[in-house]
Nucleic acid binder design. Structure first.
Lengths: 138, 138
DNA sequence: TTTGTGAATGCACTATTTTGCATATTGGAA
DNA sequence: TTCCAATATGCAAAATAGTGCATTCACAAA
């Protein structure tokens, strides 16, 4: 089921492929930017995509070795998987070199969204979130 | 015909997509490694792919802004398009971080092949090349 | 102008990806 | 338990991408 690497090149092409999708690139950008964990529904609200696609994209990123997952209660939190090899370091520098202003909307939504966590738990219903968004015109 | 960039993100995702194919990644690796030009048939011999696919991959790379082309007589030479922005710098570092040993075969074929140029022109028929390859067991 | 070599392209076919929708699964709260 | 919110997944449709083959284009040498 999981693809067993045959070609040593796969390790590299799979990462480029993972980053070649806008939603996935934004997820990685966010993770590197906030430098901490983020849950599926938080990503969903920040990127304004639906839940199942976010889940699928996260799977691709995980498969590429770029992120890892840690469950806390009913939440799945995702983290950037930092490695200390040259390739990963360069990949991080590459993603970080993408100008912040392309993420303006996402950044403000992300700040709002993450600030709603109650001691590490993201206990926010989508109604509350949508109200907040409307109020702040995000 | 040419795709007119709509989303500023395209500039980035298109590069990752371009590098997500093994043949294309090898072409870029080679270009950065030799730090000069290379013709289509040289690439073809070095990577042992057919001519029309090489041409198509080069088109994708060109479209991504990673390379440019300069015709000399009947040859098309391709060059890495160096930009001095952070993103391109990071992309180059990323590709360069891929270990040389993955390209061992390609490197020796490339050295042989490029050394056959006669004052900048790659005037080598495929028979000659194939003979040389056989002789040197490449 | 004819011929040959290097390179590009159009088309059909196959393969891979992405998406939407419906349906699971998991774990906490009532 | 039962219910609900968070997340994952199976499947089919739609969109993209890669390949092979034939053909065409470009250019230079005969």
């Amino acid at each position: 089921m999981d693809n067993f690497e045959i070609n040593p090149w796969d390790e590299y092409t799979i990462v480029f492929k993972a980053l070649s999708d806008l939603t996935r690139l934004k997820i990685i950008w966010l993770l590197l930017s906030i430098d901490s964990k983020i849950s599926v529904s938080e990503i969903k609200d920040v990127l304004e995509e639906n839940q199942y696609n976010i889940s699928k994209h996260l799977k691709v990123l995980k498969n590429a070795g770029l992120i890892y997952e840690k469950k806390e209660g009913k939440w799945s939190f995702y983290y950037y998987r930092v490695k200390d090899d040259l390739f990963d370091k360069a990949i991080r520098a590459t993603v970080k070199s993408i100008p912040n202003n392309l993420m303006d909307g996402e950044i403000s939504r992300c700040q709002k969204r993450l600030s709603m966590r109650v001691d590490g738990k993201c206990v926010v219903g989508s109604e509350q979130w949508n109200n907040l968004k409307k109020k702040d015109k995000l």
